[in-house]
């Protein structure tokens, strides 16, 4: 971790962020996971919950039981020990790949045209590059099951909406800055909506409840409206099988 120095940042009276950098990167994510493991293995007095994200670990604590100075000292010590994190980056082994059908554009993808204009690509090229990107799910967050996907083709980067929408339908597939993602439940949000998945990405009564999970490799592929409706009907009657497969580990 030579290029950047991890920062310990206040986040109110019940939380501290340890921030490893302002980019989406497997090595940074590995640092986050390593610190999470260290604090899980040896928790401090007052620790409530650890929330790993792309680039930071959020540490929630009980303000009545915390010794703040001791916590900062502990974190500084852990960070000093993280220098050899490189060898730790082995999470891709034995990982799962998921293939996800998407109907792009139209009423399901109201921002597809804007993304094409912003990126100066054709709509067809946007879809091709979005589906051609080797996406990796760094974390679930925002709402239950929302997958944050890194690895999107950088030519597709489009800023979030200036004023977030108050309603985005569930299963909408989106671009937010350099990230790809999918709204697992209906919610407000500011990402650019380019398509929709025909089944529930989050269903508390299904196993698994969350379709796209942290650590999975993700490939979207386009389907037409006929196929979309076919899958939608199968999913509603409980016979649709989510397309998982074991990822073949090649040289990388």
């Amino acid at each position: 971790m030579s290029e950047f120095k991890a920062k310990i940042l206040p986040a109110g009276e019940t939380c501290i962020f340890v921030d490893f950098g302002e980019i989406i990167d497997m090595k940074i994510n590995a640092c986050v996971q390593a610190l999470k493991r260290a604090l899980t293995d040896e928790p401090f007095e007052g620790l409530l919950e650890l929330v790993p994200t792309y680039r930071s670990l959020s540490i929630y604590f009980d303000p009545l039981r915390i010794n703040l100075d001791a916590l900062y000292e502990r974190l500084n010590k852990e960070l000093a020990g993280l220098d050899d994190y490189n060898s730790d980056n082995n999470q891709a082994a034995n990982s799962i790949e998921i293939h996800v059908p998407v109907f792009f554009g139209g009423e399901f993808g109201p921002d597809l045209q804007d993304v094409a204009e912003h990126t100066k690509l054709t709509v067809e090229e946007v879809i091709k590059r979005y589906c051609g990107s080797p996406l990796y799910c760094f974390m679930n967050g925002f709402t239950p099951g929302f997958p944050y996907l890194g690895g999107m083709d950088s030519s597709l980067e489009t800023p979030r909406l200036k004023n977030p929408r108050e309603y985005i339908p569930a299963n909408s597939v989106a671009i937010g800055g350099a990230q790809a993602g999918a709204y697992s439940i209906a919610s407000p949000g500011g990402w650019r909506i380019i398509g929709r998945v025909p089944y529930e990405l989050y269903d508390p009564y299904r196993e698994p409840a969350v379709a796209i999970q942290a650590g999975m490799y993700v490939t979207f592929y386009p389907v037409d409206m006929n196929r979309y409706q076919e899958i939608e009907a199968q999913a509603k009657s409980g016979i649709y099988k989510i397309e998982y497969k074991q990822r073949e580990m090649t040289s990388k």
């Binding site: 986040a11 680039r55 929630y60 967050g141 979030r160 200036k162 937010g176 350099a178």
Partner: peptide, 20 residues
């Protein structure tokens, strides 16, 4: 340099400043 960050956690009471 703009309102977007690489997503991280949101504690209770966090004050977000979006683009507007």
């Amino acid at each position: 340099k703009g309102p977007d960050i690489v997503s991280d956690a949101i504690p209770m009471g966090a004050v977000q400043i979006p683009g507007q």
